[in-house]
Structures are given as C-alpha cells and as structure tokens.
C-alpha cells in the first residue's frame, strides 16, 4: 500500500542516497526513528503511515522506554519482497493478510509465545507466527457536496441502481484500488468476489463509468474531499474515519448488506536481529489491539468486529485459504477478469 505522498518518496530516495548504511534493496516510502533510553533499537517495517503508527509508539514507550523504534514505511509488495529476501527487520506489520500469511507459511516468520499472544482470540492468530491487532473494514466514502440532495444508498443494490440511473453524475467520479498495484486492494477485491457476485456487477458498472484507479486509500480520500470523486469504493475504513473526524466534506456510506474486514497483522521475521525486543514491542502492540476504547487511536481494535456493527462475513479468515488468491494462475485469471470489467 502506498499511502505516502510523492514528496515523501523523494525524501526516502534521498535518505537512501545519503545514508549508505541503509542501502537496502527495497524502496522505502518513509522512515522515522524514535530513540529509546537504551541502546537497542527495534527495526520495524510496516505499511501503515507514520502518523497512524505514532500513537502506538507512545504506548510502546510507556511499557518499554529502553527500546528505540526505527520505523520504515513500505508498500505491502515491497515489504513482502524485503522479508522474502531476508532483510533484517525485527518486526513486519502489514495490512495485506495474504502476503503476510504466505511469508509465515513459507517459514520466514519466527515463533513468538507470550501472555499477550495467548490472550488473542483464535481467529486473530495463526500458529505462534502471525498475529492480528486491528480489524479494519473496507468502506465506501462519498463526497457530501456531490451527494447533496440524494438519498444515501443502503446497500450495494441501491448503489448499483443509483449509478445506473445517474450515469453522468458518476462518470469519471468513482474511484477504487488498482488491484494490480495494491496488495490491500487485491485482498479486498478477491475476498469480496469470493463472497458475493455483486462485486463483478459493481466492477462492470464502475468500468463503464470510466473508473479512476488508485494505489492508496489516502489519495482516494483526498480526491473525494476535494470533490474530484463522488464515491471511493473499498477505501480503508480506519483511514476514512480518521479523516472524517477533521473533514466534514466526507461521509462513509453505511452499506448494510456486507462488509469485508481486514486484519492488520504483525510477525517477527526469521531474520530478526533482536527477537526478544521485537517480542516485547509485538506484545505491546497486541495489548493495544485488544483494548476496549475503540476511539483513542487511529487504528480500530480487534474487538470492533465483535461489536454491534459486526458484519455478515466476519473478518477475513487467517488460514491457507489466503494462499489461493496468491497462486500465480489464480492471480492471472483474477486480474484478467478484473481488467475485463474495469478497463472496458
């Protein structure tokens, strides 16, 4: 996922050029170091933007002030490649569950066992390797200005009917992930397609409306806020809610038929240099994930999927089923079908 601003990419590239010690094969989008009181620094690679993760660092520092945190942001594909190639990170955090699962399945994760991992619900961990700490739905975000005077669709059937009847209002004004680039977009698309044929009808309709494709949720939200887009489909709900809290031009469409819920997962790579420190940081993150107050942090807790807003399908299952969509043949077939629908 690339939530980063283009300017940030430039900074990251400059950083790489300036610091030969960080001459990594993968492209970092952003990086920040929070020093600890001790000498140990835990190297984290993550798909979450720095400002999303910063509140977590404060809470981790409250538990383990001695540990510094070196936080690098990368897209889920870059993260997957870095870990698969054995880059020495102590902790890998990603929203692309399937890629995370594949890394753990292929033996690139180190087992970690603690009170915090034992406290996780069964669906939020896979073996002692992969642990979930947020439950984040995919949502549809609309521009209030462009929806002024319209009834809000209550489900996807309503949405399809609305876009069909008013094609002009939505032409070039619908945005969604380019699943060829975005790991998270691909995960959302494949899971939704597996659960409901509505996805393909919606995709064909969006294709017919000359859909705008994005790499990242943040940019989609920006364009909805500015009014360039009337609707952004399958945006990361946590980012949208954080943005809506300070921007009243946006609104989340309450689609009641179903929702795809992603679990943000973390694991300690087998190549970690400080697995003990990584375990402490991971435990702190998992404890934050199991908190009860849903609103205090930008990323919602695991408990969000068990609340009254619990959705029809529940969170995406952490299991070997995730491998199916990563299969080369399956991916090719899916992308072909997706391209047929979206790029008419």
């Amino acid at each position: 996922m690339c939530h980063a601003h283009p300017a940030r990419r430039l900074i990251a590239a400059l950083l790489l050029a300036v610091l030969p010690g960080v001459a990594l094969a993968q492209v970092l989008e952003d990086r920040r170091v929070w020093p600890g009181t001790g000498e140990r620094t835990i190297r984290v690679i993550s798909t979450a933007d720095i400002d999303v993760f910063a509140p977590f660092v404060e809470r981790i520092a409250a538990e383990r002030p001695d540990l510094g945190i070196d936080y690098a942001v990368a897209s889920s594909a870059e993260l997957h490649r870095a870990i698969a190639e054995g880059a020495s990170y102590d902790l890998a955090i990603s929203s692309a569950m399937d890629l995370q699962f594949q890394l753990a399945n292929d033996g690139l994760a180190r087992a970690h066992r603690s009170d915090a991992t034992a406290g996780l619900p069964g669906w939020a961990r896979w073996r002692d390797l992969l642990f979930a700490f947020t439950a984040e739905p995919a949502v549809a975000v609309i521009s209030r200005a462009r929806f002024a005077g319209r009834d809000r669709p209550r489900n996807r059937q309503d949405l399809i009917a609305l876009m069909r009847t008013d094609r002009e209002a939505f032409a070039r004004a619908v945005g969604t992930y380019d699943v060829r680039d975005s790991g998270l977009g691909y995960l959302f698309a494949t899971q939704e397609a597996r659960n409901s044929d509505t996805y393909w009808r919606l995709s064909e309709l969006m294709g017919g409306l000359d859909v705008q494709l994005y790499c990242c949720s943040a940019q989609m939200i920006d364009d909805v806020a500015s009014g360039r887009l009337a609707l952004a489909y399958n945006v990361l709900g946590s980012y949208a809610m954080a943005r809506i809290a300070r921007d009243d031009r946006l609104e989340i469409l309450a689609l009641q038929d179903y929702a795809t819920v992603m679990l943000r997962t973390a694991f300690i790579p087998a190549s970690a240099e400080d697995p003990e420190g990584a375990g402490a940081v991971l435990d702190a993150i998992l404890r934050i994930g199991m908190r009860d107050d849903a609103d205090a942090l930008p990323l919602p807790p695991l408990g969000a999927v068990q609340g009254p807003e619990a959705t029809a399908f529940g969170p995406i299952r952490l299991g070997p089923g995730l491998l199916v969509h990563l299969d080369r043949l399956n991916r090719e077939a899916f992308l072909a079908e997706w391209s047929d629908a979206m790029l008419q």
Partner: peptide, 24 residues
C-alpha cells in the same frame, strides 16, 4: 487451465494450523 478452488486450501485448516505447500 487451472483455477485453484478456495475450498481446496480452506479445508486444510481442519486438522490444525499447519503450513501448506502445493505444486501442480
């Protein structure tokens, strides 16, 4: 042509949380 059925992998969850490998 091959499209891996989702159930082929999902059913492997039945025994326990085990690592899965396959080859066609």
């Amino acid at each position: 042509r091959l499209e891996l059925p989702y159930s082929a992998f999902a059913m492997l969850d039945a025994i326990g949380q085990d690592r899965v490998f396959y080859r066609v």
